[in-house]
Each structure stands twice: as C-alpha cells, then as structure tokens.
Design a protein around this nucleic acid. Structure first.
Ligand SMILES: [Zn+2]
Ligand SMILES: [Zn+2]
Ligand SMILES: [Zn+2]
Ligand SMILES: [Zn+2]
Lengths: 149, 149
DNA sequence: ATAAACCCTTGAGCTAACTCCAGAGTCAAG
DNA sequence: CTTGACTCTGGAGTTAGCTCAAGGGTTTAT
C-alpha cells in the first residue's frame, strides 16, 4: 500500500503522513525498490489509532506516549493508560474553565450595552474596558431606554 | 514615563510592550532626546484597555479592531461594539463545545478501564483507540472484578 | 516509448504571542 | 568621570501541527 492509498482511506494529506513519520509516530514497514513508502495493514491500523487519539484531543506528543504503551502493552498496566486519559481530562477541564471565565466576563459586558444604533461615545463596554470596573448586573439598561447610549 | 516604569505598573515585560508597538497597538506619544520611549497617562490607560481586553479572551487582532473604535468613538455605534463582544462569545462557545466533546469521549474511555495494576494487554482504552468502537457504558467493569485487566 | 500520475528529499513558511540575543547608546548617582 | 542600570534596534528563536515549493525520480497506462 503506497502513501496515496493510505491517505485516501483516512482523509489526511500526504504531507501529514510524512510529518507524522518525522515525528516518530508512523514509520512505513517497508520501501519499494524505487524508494516508495509501503504501508502494511498494521501500519494502517496504527494510523487509525493516531487519528482516533487525536479526535479525543491528545497532542502528538501525548499520542507518542500512548503508542509507546501500545507497542509494548505487556510492560505497562491499565493504571498507566488510565492515568494518561485522566491527565488529559484535567488539562481539558482547565482549558474549559478559562474559556468559561472569558465567556462570563463577556456576557457581563454584553448585558451592559444596549447594542443600539447610537454613538459609541458612552458605550458601557468601552467604559468597562477603559476603567476596569466590573459591570454590575443592576447597571444593565433596558433596550428601549438606554440612557447612556 | 519610561518603558520600565510602565511595565512595572502593569506586570508585563519590556519586550511585550515593544511587540505591541510593532503590532500597532500602543505607540508611545513621545521620545526623549536620547531616543527613549516616553509614555503619557493616556498611553498608560491604553495599555490598561489592551490588557483588560486580553483578559476576557480577545486576540491582539481583535483588540486592534476594538482600539479603532475606541480611537474614534463618535463614528461608531453601540451595535458595533456589542457585535464584537457577541462574535467573541460565539467563538469561545465553539471552543468550549469542542473541548466538551473531547472531555466526554475521554470520560467514556476512562469509565471503561479498571485502572488497576494489571497488564495493559487487554486495556479497553487501547482497544477502543485501536478499533474505534465506541465504548458503551454497560461495558464498564467494576474495580474489584475487572475481567479483562 | 512517452506522458500522466505518483512519489521522493530538503528545507522553508505559516499562525500567535511573545521571548531572547548581540551590540550599542543613554542616563543617574557617587 | 566612571559605573551600573536602563534603553535602543534588528533580527532570530519558540511551540504545534501542519503546508507548500523546488527539483527531481518512479510507475503505469497507452
Ligand atoms: Zn454600548
Ligand atoms: Zn447603549
Ligand atoms: Zn485499562
Ligand atoms: Zn482493566
């Protein structure tokens, strides 16, 4: 199986496969006489493994670590694998938390602004960014009666 | 006010300030005879604006757009500002969604594995990544009686 | 035999937001 | 007047995960 056949099956680019090889993730098990990469069924499955791990958020570095386990299963324990998964879960939970903090801060800014067709000279979003005063919920101004804007 | 004074007030590095200048975010309003950057009170406030916008998740590019409005408030409307905020909220919501999908997929993998001190040869996490079969909740194996691992 | 389609290697470029470095000039205190 | 802290410019390097381009060699179909 040549590289072109492989990528068609998995919907990735040729460059990506060669990049994964440089990253020590997937090395073709043989080469043709002319130097073409030849992939076995096992190679094909290894790529599936990589792509599935990617699809749940693992980085290539982390996938490399998972593959080390996969390559030598008997020398590792369930706890090793589960630890990797839980560590990733923690990482992702942290990222989600930060984004949620952003989201809530933005929602407060959003609430405070009438969003009308009215000069931004006194927009409370800009004011909040200038002065850093947290925009309190009770400072919200109803749409039809925006005093500031 | 020289660059060192400015960074002490805001807790950013000198390089960051010069980088922001290259990015057209913050240009010192004057230079000393020897060529030192001199920042006015307005410059100082502008940096506050930038850092607050950053703290709610805006990219430097987006901050540049916000500053265009800030610099010419009378030519813009509340709706322009609110649109930027809402657009960012949408972006962040999308990022959160993707991370949550990752998280849920990982949680399923996590559930399926006993995490014990037992060979990984039949770890259901690895199996799932190899075969891509979604790990069903009922396949979960209680900790004390992990048949596979 | 020849043309199209495929593949090879090497190395550079991309995005974002810095960070660091070399080599030189400026400023303030003692 | 010298020392040390500060600042300047220009350019390169960082991380992650690709993506592209140049200049060739290989395969396969007609
Ligand atoms: Zn407004
Ligand atoms: Zn308003
Ligand atoms: Zn397991
Ligand atoms: Zn188990």
């Amino acid at each position: 199986m040549k590289i072109g056949d492989l990528v068609k099956q998995h919907g990735v680019s040729v460059d990506t496969i060669r990049f994964y090889e440089k990253q020590q993730l997937l090395t073709p098990s043989a080469r043709s006489e002319g130097g073409y990469r030849l992939y076995s069924h096992a190679d094909n499955q290894r790529l599936s493994f990589i792509l599935r791990a990617k699809s749940v958020g693992f980085s290539l570095q982390q996938i490399r670590e998972l593959l080390q386990i996969e390559d030598n299963k008997s020398q590792w324990q369930c706890s090793d694998v589960k630890d990797k998964v839980q560590h990733k879960m923690t990482e992702i939970a942290e990222q989600i938390s930060e984004l949620q903090r952003f989201y809530q801060a933005l929602a407060q800014l959003d609430q405070a602004c009438c969003g009308g067709s009215v000069s931004a000279t006194e927009c409370s979003i800009l004011t909040a960014l200038e002065q850093g005063q947290p925009v309190l919920a009770e400072q919200h101004i109803p749409k039809q009666e925006c005093a500031k804007c």
